[in-house]
Design a protein around this nucleic acid. Structure first.
Length: 725
DNA sequence: TAGGGTTTT
């Protein structure tokens, strides 16, 4: 019996963290355990009088027909050609930096080669869940083994791996970091591969620093850092001059064409470029990179208009397709379908999703205006915001590469070669330099790292950012005066949540409302669930009214979630109510996970009941328990002033709050056309003084508007603290 | 009264 992977094998199998994978059998365990580490095909015994064929050393069974198909392709990959060199250099060095271009096969082949070379347990990290799943599936097929046994994967909510059998595990970088919570030397692995290291995600950066320390403690551990673009100096130097291996890719040539002179209106230039391609260049699909939803929808209508106006003159029409992550899945998937009508030229107008996360084959022309929205963090105001910025040279190369996946292509850069060299930074700023570090610091503390300032980050964050993070952890009760992790802090780190949300959950049983708080925590952890297509904005707003709790955006979110559950998580119902079903389904999963965690920690799951008049009051108090540092009081007309930082802000127009409460708590501060606070709830000022935190000690405030507002609030609510000078 | 790039636990 051969195991032929079918379409079903691609489906995601779900199992809980500690249970064995589906269909695991003792016989396979036996086979694997008795197997030698080097995997050379052996001969199978003759069965049923048939001839003896080559036999899969991992299973002892004859190979399937699919195996031979995949094997042929795999042997043609550049990495396969270099296999001996790769294995040798990894075995001889503790750390190796492997630079393999797109199409080299590094992600599928390197881990397997190392397994076959005798490593006992290998983890290979991926920045994205979908990559971990699809690569693990591919490798299991290539090795002709069942997914979840020898080869498996672990991502949040899904563990398709076996504690004993799995020897090659693909895992999201965040998940491996979590594993280090249980085992801070990651001692089950003798080889750890960090893939896509050039993306420099927060988790990969923390893992790199952590692993550098672990390497010193565990002389048997080997590590491979795999990266696509040239950052050789940076990676090699960081890992004490680790050797660099370079494997060529298999890409088709891409002709790069720069603008001859600077472009001032890139949207206009994009449109001109599409016309030029459509009217003069041979058939082939076009991919355009823009910065956001609004720009994309605008461009789509301009291009559709052009297509309608000129279809007769130029023969084939354009099929214009938007692509950004907030789009419903069904709309996103259209970019993979054949064009409609069949003779049309597809024009995909995308955000950065198309740069790394979503790969579309068959693109011949790429148009790159050279901008993207980037998250920036300002530690002095503690505001994270999005800013349209020039992309990096690395990013520009990545975009260009999207044109040469299946055949030679052209990339039109709407900036001059001079600008490319002098105005674009060589590399993107790693995320760790652009983020609020509260959770990173808490993670490091939990991992037992005491000297945070000297933690060996590849790019150390600004001291100010670290200090701000520590200060916040202190106010939240996660660390004490000696900057030691408290019991509360340990619990907060367990939760896969922003620490403020974790704190809200931990305090919620005290307010008799942990049930609602868990729902809210899940809703705050997923993207905005309210859809508002420009054409149907009024209708969408009207639908949202059905869920409104007039003094709280937080409570409104809880009501939306409950209504979603009441309607059986129905997608159609979501569509009718302009709600993002994907985000809501995700919230359902998160909620389930959080509830289990709460129960395991012995925290009470309680609710005042849906009809209780004080239900939303309790919830708003829970919110304040986590977000007490994000309150604001009404100043004048439309303006609020944030406490402590005294920033003048407006209520975001998406808020359900129509009156002007004197005090509010908010979830986030956004900087767009103005300064806004978004996801807001009314609070009673007296609650501030009942919080178990020093944050509202009047002594902590300099003379100013905030202090005066607090003094007034204290006086009005009869707080004795107001008497303090 | 307006916009949210992308990921992950």
């Amino acid at each position: 019996m051969t195991h032929v992977p079918s379409e079903d094998s691609h489906k995601i199998q779900v199992s809980t963290a500690k249970s064995p994978p589906p269909n695991s059998k003792r016989t396979i365990a036996h086979e694997l355990e008795s197997m030698e580490t080097s995997a050379r095909p052996s001969r199978c015994r003759e069965t049923n009088g048939g001839p003896a064929g080559p036999c899969n050393p991992w299973t002892g069974k004859p190979f399937s027909s699919l195996y031979y198909q995949l094997e042929e392709k795999r042997r043609a990959l550049p990495v396969f050609q270099e296999r001996e060199r790769i294995v040798e250099i990894v075995k001889r060095n503790r750390v190796v930096v492997l630079q393999g271009e797109t199409g080299s096969g590094k992600t599928t082949q390197v881990p397997r080669l190392l397994l076959e070379a005798g490593f006992q347990r290998i983890a290979c990290t991926q920045p994205r869940r979908i990559a971990a799943v699809s690569v693990a599936t591919r490798v299991a097929h290539e090795m002709d083994v069942r997914l979840g046994e020898l080869v498996g994967y672990t991502i949040r909510f899904e563990d398709v791996s076996h504690p004993k059998l799995t020897r090659l595990k693909y895992v999201t970088d965040g998940m491996l970091l979590r594993e280090a919570f249980q085992d801070d030397r990651l001692s089950r692995y003798d080889c750890i591969i960090l893939d896509e290291a050039h993306e420099r995600t927060l988790s990969t950066d923390v893992l790199m620093g952590l692993l550098k320390g672990i390497l010193k403690q565990r002389p048997e551990l080997h590590m491979v850092v795999m990266s696509a673009t040239l950052e050789r100096d940076h990676f090699c130097t960081y890992f004490d001059h680790a050797p660099l291996l370079n494997v060529s890719g298999r890409m088709h040539p891409v002709d790069i064409r720069f603008a001859e002179r600077p472009v001032f209106d890139y949207l206009f230039a994009v449109e001109q470029q599409v016309r030029q391609i459509h009217e003069n260049e041979p058939a082939g699909d076009v991919l355009i990179f823009l910065t956001g939803e609004e720009e994309i929808e605008d461009m789509c209508s301009r291009l559709r208009h052009y297509s309608r106006a000129t279809a007769r003159k130029h023969g084939a029409p354009l099929q214009v397709l938007p692509l950004y992550s907030a789009l419903p899945m069904s709309v996103q998937e259209r970019v993979f379908e054949p064009p409609r009508p069949p003779e049309a030229r597809k024009v995909i107008v995308a955000t950065n999703v198309a740069e790394t996360s979503i790969t579309i084959d068959g693109i011949t022309y790429v148009i790159d205006p050279g901008f993207a929205k980037v998250k920036i963090y300002n530690p002095s105001t503690r505001v994270e915001s999005l800013l349209v910025s020039p992309i990096s040279q690395d990013s520009a190369r990545q975009r260009a590469g999207r044109a040469g996946r299946t055949r030679p292509g052209i990339c039109y850069r709407l900036y001059t070669e001079e600008a490319f060299r002098t105005e674009l930074p060589a590399r993107s700023h790693p995320e760790i330099l652009r983020s609020n570090l509260c959770n990173v610091v808490l993670t490091l503390k939990k991992l037992g790292i005491h000297d945070l300032i000297h933690f060996d980050f590849m790019d150390p964050p600004a001291p100010d950012t670290m200090i701000r993070a520590l200060e916040m952890l202190f106010y939240l009760g996660a660390v004490d005066e000696e900057v030691e992790l408290t019991q509360l802090g340990r619990q907060m780190a367990e939760f896969p949540l922003d620490i403020q949300i974790a704190r809200m959950l931990l305090e919620s049983p005290r307010h008799g409302s942990s049930n609602e708080a868990i729902t809210l925590a899940a809703m705050l952890s997923v993207p905005n669930v309210f859809l508002r297509p420009r054409q149907q904005a009024d209708e969408a707003d009207a639908r949202k009214q059905r869920f409104v709790v007039s003094d709280s955006d937080h409570a409104t979110l809880v009501r939306v979630f409950e209504a979603f559950m009441d309607h059986g998580c129905d997608r159609q119902w979501c569509a009718e109510n302009y709600l993002n079903d994907r985000a809501l389904m995700h919230a359902v999963n998160i909620r389930r996970q959080l509830e289990l965690m709460m129960q395991r920690m012995g925290l009470r799951i309680c609710s005042p009941g849906r009809r209780a008049p004080d239900r939303w009051i309790r919830l708003r108090r829970c919110v304040l328990e986590g977000f007490f540092s994000q309150t604001a009081f009404w100043m004048r007309r439309r303006d609020y002033l944030t406490i402590r930082d005294e920033q003048l802000v407006g209520l975001h127009p998406s808020s359900v709050i129509r009156h002007r409460p004197s005090w509010v708590v908010f979830h986030e501060f956004v900087l767009t056309t103005g300064s806004y606070i978004r996801t807001v709830s009314q609070i009673e000022p007296k609650w501030l003084f009942e919080l178990p935190t020093k944050y509202y000690d009047l002594l902590e405030y300099k003379e100013g508007a905030s202090r005066r507002a607090l003094e007034l609030a204290a006086r009005l609510t009869g707080q004795r603290r107001s008497a303090a000078p």
